[in-house]
Nucleic acid binder design. Structure first.
Length: 390
DNA sequence: TCTGGGGTCCTAGGACCC
DNA sequence: TCTGGGGTCCTAGGACCC
């Protein structure tokens, strides 16, 4: 989906179309404050000047999505709000309305599945679709079906998307970025050399900042240069599995199927504090946040019908280092008090000498609730650890 | 005035078992 | 006195993705 979070907001505030808008830095509806000043004005009539600006933003958030107008200024996803404010102070800032985003996410995926049932969910704004057995899926190399999907999504939601059609997922993913927004790109096997090989290795889905930097150091910049590397040489530098995978990716080889169903592996909740907290001095505040995180994970587990056996905590220190500790228990649980007790034991094993920036609670080794007989054993009261005592 | 939140997968060492 | 392989599970960290 094109600039998904921002596009969803623009449906509500069409008067902001064409303007630099960024989404991020908070959650909820943007209306709340605006409503005070414009109690009787329809949402789509509130003047753009009334909306909050990036230059007035104070906080630790990052940009979730930027409109194409904002991207002109160099603002983009995952960029800190404060840095974005320097680049484009006049941009309008809207919080993330997850309920609304999820609603549109479900809608566009339902539309796709109606047309092409073999669809793999890749997060809130992205999917893989297998055209192979869809009637007409091969016409014009898939372009006809891609166009049909775009039109159906637009009719149902008012949103646009970009589609890449290719012989496999790796190439399709790259092709989807060739013609944004609202574009379709068809890439065939014989186009590999002309259209894929000139791209930077970083464009391969799976090569991130670290692998990119290492490849640069080795003098490999483009996918074509990567394809020219000896497979064995890549294996020497990146290990058996990654090296071989890189070589295959560069040659456009990818036989992963489109997976329509999958079970979750873990569920977690984490939060970055408004200011860094100290384990001793801010013990009460931390304890309250910790309890809340446990309750939210437990609620997520119950809502989705899972129990988990591995319970863990995640800390981010003020220097951005991350520490995790986890512990596996006998029987899966979705109970907030049990999660808090076990997570509390994990917390006791992690150094708490530095200020903390983030705290998270995770439950893994999930299985559907009800699959396991019996209920989770609980620890005795007196085992409850003394949290955040230094 | 840097740097969110929710995920998956991989690696590597150690415990433990046969 | 020296020293097998194979396997699974647990734990911690890290890369990467949306």
């Amino acid at each position: 989906m094109d600039a998904f979070f921002a596009s969803v907001e623009l449906l509500r505030y069409p008067q902001l179309r064409g303007l630099a808008v960024v989404i991020g830095g908070g959650r909820g509806r943007a209306d709340a404050l605006l409503r005070e000043r414009y109690p009787d004005t329809p949402t789509d009539r509130i003047p753009p000047e009334a909306f909050p600006r990036l230059q007035d933003y104070v906080g630790r958030g990052v940009i979730t999505t930027a409109t194409y107008a904002a991207r002109q200024f160099g603002v983009g996803s995952a960029m800190g709000m404060m840095k974005a404010a320097r680049l484009c102070p006049q941009a309008i800032v809207l919080p993330v309305d997850f309920d609304e985003v999820r609603r549109y996410s479900r809608t566009f995926k339902d539309v796709i599945r109606e047309i092409a049932p073999v669809m793999e969910d890749r997060g809130v704004d992205e999917v893989y679709i297998d055209f192979t057995d869809v009637p007409g899926g091969q016409r014009e190399g898939g372009r006809v079906l891609a166009r049909l999907i775009q039109k159906a999504i637009h009719a149902a939601t008012g949103l646009t998307c970009s589609i890449g059609v290719a012989p496999n997922k790796q190439i399709a993913k790259m092709a989807s970025e060739f013609d944004k927004p609202n574009g379709i790109s068809v890439v065939l096997d014989e186009d590999l050399q002309a259209r894929i090989w000139p791209l930077a290795v970083r464009k391969i889905n799976g090569i991130g900042p670290k692998a990119d930097a290492k490849l640069q150091r080795l003098g490999v910049r483009t996918i074509g240069e990567l394809a020219a590397c000896e497979r064995e040489w890549l294996v020497q530098h990146f290990g058996r599995s990654t090296g071989a995978w890189m070589h295959d990716a560069a040659w456009g080889r990818d036989d992963r199927p489109v997976v329509t169903e999958s079970e979750p592996v873990s569920m977690s909740r984490e939060t970055t504090f408004e200011r860094d907290l100290h384990a001793v001095r801010d013990k009460a505040a931390l304890g309250a946040i910790f309890t809340d995180l446990c309750e939210r994970v437990a609620a997520d587990l119950r809502r989705k019908g899972y129990v988990g056996r591995t319970i863990g905590v995640k800390l981010r220190y003020d220097d951005f280092r991350i520490a995790t500790r986890d512990q596996t228990i006998e029987t899966g649980t979705d109970d907030a008090a049990t999660i808090r007790r076990v997570a509390g034991l994990c917390l006791k094993r992690v150094p708490l000498d530095r200020r903390l920036r983030l705290l998270g609670v995770r439950v893994g080794k999930l299985e559907p609730a009800g699959a396991a007989a019996g209920s989770a054993p609980t620890l005795a009261r007196e085992d409850t650890p003394d949290l955040f005592a230094s």
